[in-house]
Amino acid sequence: MFLLELHHGLLAESFELQTAQHSGWRLVTPCDGDLPEYDKQGGKVLYKLGDIAPICPILREAGDLHAPKYEEFIRLLMKMFSTAQSGQNWPDVMYDQVHEVGRVNVRGISGKIENYVIIQFGKKKNLIRVLAFISAFGRKRAFISHVFEKPANSKTTPKKEIVRAQNNLQEYLNAIEAKNIQLISAQGGKNEFLKMV
C-alpha cells in the first residue's frame, strides 16, 4: 500500500515532493500507486499539481466538486495543514470544525481487535467533510481516509461514508501488519514511513 503525506507543499503550482518539515502531526492518505523520486537523467522530479491528483483519491475526487464546495475543500485542507504544524490536539485548535462521528472496530490480520474513533473535519453546517483517524500515541499521526459531500438534507454522516472510512483503515492496518506499506518513493518510501510508526 502506498501513502502520500499531505502538507502545504503539495498545493503549490510545482514542487519537489518531500515529507512535512515540521514536528507536528503527520497526515497520511492512501494512494493508488507510487511516484518516482528521480527522473531518467537522475535529477529530482519536479512535480506539478496535476501529477499527484490522479493517484490520490482525496485530491482527484475533489476535482469534481461544485465550485463553492471545491473552494471550501481547499480552505479546509489548508486549515488542517496549518493546524498540523503546531502538534496541538485538533479539537483545541479547530474547535467546532472537528467532531467525532462514530467508532469502528477493526480486526487485524493477527486477530487483534482495535477500536478507533472516526474524526470528521468540516463545520457542521458545511457540506464538505474529511474523515480521519487520529493516533496520538507515540508519534502524532493522522490517517486521512477520504473526502465526501454531506447530502444537504442530512443531519448525520451517511452510513456508506463510515463504512468506506472503516474499509480504508482496515486496509491500512493490514498493510502495516503485513509490512507491505510505504510512503511514495519521492517522500522517502519505506524508510520515511518507518519513522512514523
Binding site: I52, G63, D64
Partner: peptide, 13 residues
C-alpha cells in the same frame, strides 16, 4: 483518474 487530476489542478490554479 488523469482527467480528474487535471480538473483538480486547473481549478486550483
Amino acid at each position: 483518474k488523469v482527467a480528474a487530476g487535471k480538473r483538480f489542478a486547473s481549478r486550483l490554479t
